[in-house]
Design a protein around this nucleic acid. Sequence first.
DNA 1: GAAATCC
DNA 2: GGATTTCAACGCCCT
DNA 3: AGGGCG
Length: 942
Amino acid sequence: MLKKYTEKRDFNKTPEPKGDKKPRTTKNKSLSFVVQEHAATRLHFDFRLEFNGVLLSWAIPKGPSLNTNDKRLAVMTEDHPLDYANFEGIIPSGYGAGEVIVWDRGIYLPLDKNEESISGIIEAEKLIKNGLKEGKLLFKLEGKKLKGIWTLVRMKKTEKDWLLIKHKDEFASEKSHPWKDDSILSGETLSDLQNAKSSPTKKKIEKKSAPKPVGVQKQKTAEKKILKSGLPKFSPPMLATLAAETFTNKDWVFEPKLDGIRALSYVNGGDVEIFSRRGQLLAGRYPSLTEELAQYKNNFVIDGEIVAFDKNNRPSFEKLQERSGLTKATDIKIAEQVNPIKYYVFDILFLDGRDLRQLSLSERKNFLHKSVSSSEHIEIIEELGYNGNNAYQACIDNGLEGVVGKRLSSTYQINRRSTDWLKVKGTFTDEFIICGYTQGTGGRKDTFGALILGEYSPTNKLVHVCSVGTGFDDKKIKQMLSTMKPLQTKNCPFAKRPQGLDNPTWVEPKLVAEIKFAERTKDNSLRVPVFLHLREDIEPKKVKPKAIVIDPSVLVNEASPKTIANEASVRKTSKKKAEKGSTKVTSEIAEILSQLDNENENLQLIVEGNKINFSSLNKSYWPGYASQATITKRHYLRYLASVSPWLLPHLHDRLITLIRFPQGIQGQKFFQKHWSDNLPDFVETVRVFTEHENKDLDFLLCNNLSTLLWLGQIADLELHTAHTRINALPDAKNLPTKFTGSVENLEKSLLNYPDFMVFDLDPYLYSGAEKKGDEPELHRKGFKETCRAAFWFKELFDQLSLNAFVKTSGKTGLHIYVPIKRNIDYDKVREISQTICKHILVKHPTKVTTDWSVSKRKGKVFLDHNMNARSKSLASIFSPRVSKEAAVSTPLGWDELEEIYPTDFTIETLPLRLKEKGDLWADILSRKNDLASLFSSLSTII
DNA sequence: GAAATCC
DNA sequence: GGATTTCAACGCCCT
DNA sequence: AGGGCG
Ligand SMILES: [Mn+2]
Ligand SMILES: [Mn+2]
């Protein structure tokens, strides 16, 4: 399994180690590097590590772990392998436990959080969080390099936590993995590892530093401070009562139920304390939130929920728990960047010395909106209206836990679980005791099928609850198995032996698991249980059924369901917008629009005779903000259908690049040019040779309405097209249409002769609010400068008598398209476009740039001629863009440039403009310029 | 988002 | 049926 | 040649 990497390795010319003691692992002559000085010192200077282009700076820990007599850094190669059998998770002597360990299959970086390593750890965590954990590695040492595709993995080995950078395919096959019993904790994080390993050390620390008195003292001082400043002292917050189902009632308002921790903030002119439900001090854990609250110069007490997010930007209690465990300032510093939180505020208790708690919720909400505004870590919770069923459905669809309904007239009742606040949850979690496991089948016949769960009855008898077989990946299964093995016993631990279990293996009831489930059934079982994780902090004996169960029917009645019928009917009569005013809106489109005008989550449409299934129609693709409403998948599909008469001609016969966002614009994205699954037969493709694969591949086209809507279904939120077409008409009848077999064929063909010379104008004027590494955000000055640059192009094109078209890119800049006869190929077009850009650069060197390196573009408008290339594509006109405003790339008249702003044209507003102004680019292909004749004289003109 | 795989 | 995992570009520019 | 870039 190592053969693949032979060519890629760069270390195999390194000299053999000389003399002294050989490391235990080198009996097969593993290769070492002789470094002249102390390894740590040397590495400090000579070692550079980049992953996916991100510099991972890492300090090599100094200290007793490093033996100063060891002057070798081991570099294992295939010819000189590590003796895995004897490796046993112990770092070979001679390498020092604190060093960066380099071998042919991976690099280990210690996750010791000292000042110098923090930035490296943060960057690595960000890469992992952003799904970039697999990618390109550059590791330079002693002038030599390791390259290739590698993967970042956090893992725990021996006593230490490490970041492992491993070869892409390494460990793919468990059987041959020499460390198969090692836990590769890919899904877990620094803090998990920190917590998991630190139980013994924690106790030591507790003894040493006696945290209890410190904590008490701290809390006291905090209270004192608050009392002194005129704010009341902490009292526990009002709580919601669990209800079984939602309802609709105009006297109520629903809010999303966020899975985080409750937090009351006491703010007094720069002094801030944040309390948990039980009065623990939280401010220290969330320094940037605390800082933001400290910006307020008045005093108030607000109530809300602190939330962390998973990779799809959904609230995640697990991610928040990672934060809660952190105590060290350095850990918190890392987490603030890698795992940021948001404080969703939903109530205000005091304001400027006034007690608001006896006011009604609606009055308090008014005060809240007046006194607190959104900032990076603070947001006022969204109100979802009085239709609880809709609110609930929307929340569940968006991966939220459920909703909380609140009576608008209710007061704030401290320290009380009130029925004026009702929460409705989709799922539950609880702890259960692992009492054994069943035999697995198929791929799991050698491990286990399901865990057998139990809990203690009120009479302290261990009773069987159910089995749970989902929620494990292979790694979790292995971990669980090794955790359970030592606890195996012949005796069934239950008071009454349960029947019908598949060849059970019993274990002593010592492990506690957290289980998610949909419902607790009457026979004491769980519906759709899913294993989450072990709970090492809970005593098995304490695992009993949750005591208080409230009769939901009482609560629903209390919420006056009388009005439900009325409201529901109001909701249903949502009027259908008439799509009229243009001859282009065919009856087919009108039919599609009307069929999409309902609240169904899923829908099958017949489009052009094709059955197309649509799903998740209420999913938010562009979430709302400020006054802007959320754009759901349904809205997006309606947009596509309504602009299709204008859009489709510009897509026709062009290879498209999809940019897909299945979880909406805040979720993960990816590019796609091919479709390997079952392609609907209305989607046309074209086979084209690709250089990097050295073979022919099928590329997608969007030549009909069915395909356009299908692209919407698969969450392709941007429509990018090539500048070439597979159609020779009308100006390229002589060009070959064979695109397959070789680059030569492709270069001779139509697909090397573009319809346009394009210029991509991007303002690299930063607003200052961008996060480090982000592109410049849209702002007035940047766009204005871009327009100025565009006019310089226009001036030149006028001199050259060239027809040129301009459009907003939909993001921050402009695109200029010069339609050309297909008599010059991409190389020539690019050359001409480069000449043009350089010409403008010479005239306005302080305003524009053509520099390829992003860092040198700062403050200027980037004139990008490089988009004139075969594999490049640009957002088509009428393509939405992934920005919070849902702006759309829009054709402009040159005379409009002065007046407009990119966000004037959005999914919401563009259809109207189209109906009024039509397509300003409709004739772009019939207004082609002949660049071939211009080309010969270009140098004299410019 | 879709498909495959496992419960 | 539900949960989980995996997968989903490309080639020119620059040094 | 490999990472940078859009
Ligand atoms: Mn660009
Ligand atoms: Mn651009």
